[in-house]
Every structure is written in structure tokens, then in C-alpha cells.
């Protein structure tokens, strides 16, 4: 019984850690394209705010490139400044 509970806890921790890794580093991309609307939208909240690093797990380097890409896409009206 106690053993089961311990195992469950371990599993939970592991899962959380996996989710928090930067997906751009994992994919090994060289840059983030500002024309890639689906990816940019996935990195935004429903109100079109950029997801924070703590929430998305993005590395510092890619968070900077992501910001650049989102700002460019917003200027060209590809993604909204303020979501509906």
C-alpha cells in the first residue's frame, strides 16, 4: 500500500518535469519563423498574451526569438494583438 503511493508520487513528478522542457530546443530548430501562425498561436493564451517561460517551459534563447516572431506576426495582422 505505502509502496504504491510512493510510486505514484514519483510518476507525477517525472511527468511534470517532462512537460516543462522547451519544445523548440527539443525539435532542434534554428529559428522560429514569424509566418508560422499555428505554432505562434499555440504559444499564446486565448487572449493572445504570450505564454510565460514558467508556463510553457521555453528556454531563454527561444523565448526571445519567439517574442520577436510574435511581434512581427502581429504587425502583419497574421495573429491578433488582443484576442476575442
Amino acid at each position: 500500500m505505502t509502496n504504491d503511493r510512493k510510486n505514484r508520487k514519483k510518476k507525477k513528478k517525472f511527468k511534470k518535469f517532462r512537460e516543462r522542457r522547451c519544445r523548440f530546443t527539443r525539435l532542434g530548430v534554428e529559428f522560429i519563423d514569424w509566418k508560422d501562425v499555428p505554432t505562434l498561436q499555440r504559444m499564446c493564451t486565448g487572449q493572445s498574451k504570450i505564454l510565460g517561460r514558467k508556463r510553457s517551459g521555453t528556454s531563454a534563447k527561444f523565448q526571445r526569438t519567439l517574442k520577436q516572431a510574435i511581434q512581427r506576426a502581429r504587425y502583419m495582422a497574421l495573429i491578433p494583438y488582443v484576442g476575442s
Partner: peptide, 14 residues
């Protein structure tokens, strides 16, 4: 070339 590779990776991931 780089952007073609980028979109390949993104599609694969999806």
C-alpha cells in the same frame, strides 16, 4: 533551405 527544414520539423512534431 532552413525554413523548409523548419516546417518539416514542425509538421513532424504535430
Amino acid at each position: 533551405e532552413r525554413s523548409a527544414a523548419y516546417y518539416d520539423k514542425m509538421r513532424e512534431d504535430q
